[in-house]
Design a protein around this nucleic acid. Sequence first.
DNA 1: CCAGACGTTGTT
DNA 2: GTCTGG
DNA 3: CCAGACGTTGTT
DNA 4: GTCTGG
Length: 240
Amino acid sequence: MCGRYATTQTSATLHQAFEADLATSFVELEADYNVAPTKLAPVVIARRGDESASARRELLTARWGLVPSWAKDPSIGNRMINARSETVADKPAFKKAFAQRRALVPADGYYEWYAAQPREGEKKPAKQPFYITPKDGSVLAMAGLYEFWKDREADEWVVSFTILTTTAEDDLGHVHERMPLFLQPQAFDEWLDPAPRSTDELLGLLVPAAPGRLDAFPVSTAVNNVRNNGPELIVPIAAE
DNA sequence: CCAGACGTTGTT
DNA sequence: GTCTGG
DNA sequence: CCAGACGTTGTT
DNA sequence: GTCTGG
């Protein structure tokens, strides 16, 4: 799955990499090596332009954990951090966003916790975090959805997002059973376009990471605690 | 019909 | 809002 | 995802 | 054990 990730690029770099203008509401964020649910992170979306038929890309800051528009309380987003691609088109919490509000979630890499099989009679070993990142250092575009929620108390709109998952490929399957889905640049426009498309067509745009593209290595358990942050979290440590 | 949930992963 | 379960 | 709390009353 | 918060 994807329950923690890193996004450290400046808005200028993201602007360039995703050909996206900064939304007026965009909030400049510090490099984040430990993005956890409920935190703000940059996402790329597209809205239809007034005149041209093509949508124009925008960089927004949004809260991780999709809060459906009908929610009474934003805390429901705490358990909407991932959406299964197999069912996302039908689930009440994601259906509308899948149909109308698809997003890219820029990431340098993401974390998975590997739980080794406990040996007979022994207590289960501690989980080992791994960092999974492109070998070539490129920025990942994770497949996401976003949603608007009106905070009536504060009289403000909250933008939130979720990340789509699928079954892990063999080369990363040994770390985890599930993994996020990605988009390649040539598919960005189709994915982001809010115009109606068939579920099959949309899901066809999504790919597990190209085989061999990603590197996975163990890192310090410092990432476990959301209060820790910094480049030391993605430094490889000696494998067991 | 109304009431109540609306999600994923992992572990057992 | 919309789906599922009773 | 992991870490940390998990509760109430009354007093400051 | 299970829920909430980050």
